[in-house]
Write a protein that binds this DNA or RNA. Sequence first.
DNA 1: TATTGTTATACTCTATAACTATA
DNA 2: TATAGTTATAGAGTATAACAATA
Lengths: 173, 173
Amino acid sequence: MTVSKTAEKSSEKPADTAKGRKDAAEAQPEALQLGELSEQLGYILKRAQLKVFENFLRCMASLQLTPAQFSVLLLVEKNPGRNQTEIASTLGILRPNFVAMLDNLESRDLCARIRSTNDRRSHILVLTDKGKAVLARAKKLVATKHEARLNDLLGQANREALIAMLSKVANEF
Amino acid sequence: MTVSKTAEKSSEKPADTAKGRKDAAEAQPEALQLGELSEQLGYILKRAQLKVFENFLRCMASLQLTPAQFSVLLLVEKNPGRNQTEIASTLGILRPNFVAMLDNLESRDLCARIRSTNDRRSHILVLTDKGKAVLARAKKLVATKHEARLNDLLGQANREALIAMLSKVANEF
DNA sequence: TATTGTTATACTCTATAACTATA
DNA sequence: TATAGTTATAGAGTATAACAATA
């Protein structure tokens, strides 16, 4: 919900900075009470997701890959020979919206559309050599800079528990 | 990333249904391999968030409240006497985008803008009586239908652990 | 000069209908 | 007729600049 990127930065500090808390004996300081909001599943889920995506983008700045593009490359690599509809629907991307995304990846020579010989309506998706190389570098960046950060923050065991619970929510909620 | 609502429904079943698995001794069935994607923090976080928001909207259908609107009502109730800038920035909503949102809530007589007498530039936000009543009903619906579902799925202890870890990610990642 | 609420605007995501070419 | 890829388009959500009123 809500929770914009720039605004997050501006709502980051105002809790206990010099401005927000000039004097210990002041009537109404600055910081608002979150109250029940801090226990609302949807609210913290959304804020956590925005933070994680932000960090992902920073980690991948050198490769210029968004989370969505990374997920496409991963899925195509793991499932070569599949067509656009199959890749898109697995990722929850609507076919019309997948077109521009693929145009982008193809224009950067990261993946290619190949007309299927069985069914000439289909475009089989494959990674180019450059696409494979970029994906390999992306995986390393994600592992060392992005996912490693979660380990530092929560520890290995908790990290795995978090992923497991989120998967359960995503699949069964 | 990606992961649209309608497409999620269509990519829900195709794992092991009658269609997807006609015969045990078939070459290449239907379901794609998610591979490393199923361990990607951002990916499952996003899918979980979409599922939770979807469920929230269904639970609140009778009150016609979105997660964002609910969060505004909660925060205004907990922090009466604050102005638009304070409420918006705490929620990570940019001031320009908060205007239409408030117009909506005010037109439904759920909250009101009051010109501050101290600083006549500011609009103090308050809940109307109807706003308080609707929020009270909303809280009940959220508790009994929405958050309770998480308990059923994970159990009380895990539910609290999940919320705690997500908060940590949202605040410190 | 700075801030509050606002307007206008643009860009991204997501969603639906309809076209084309193939089947 | 049905499906794959595509186009066009519309609606959210999010972002920035700039204006009027007030401080």
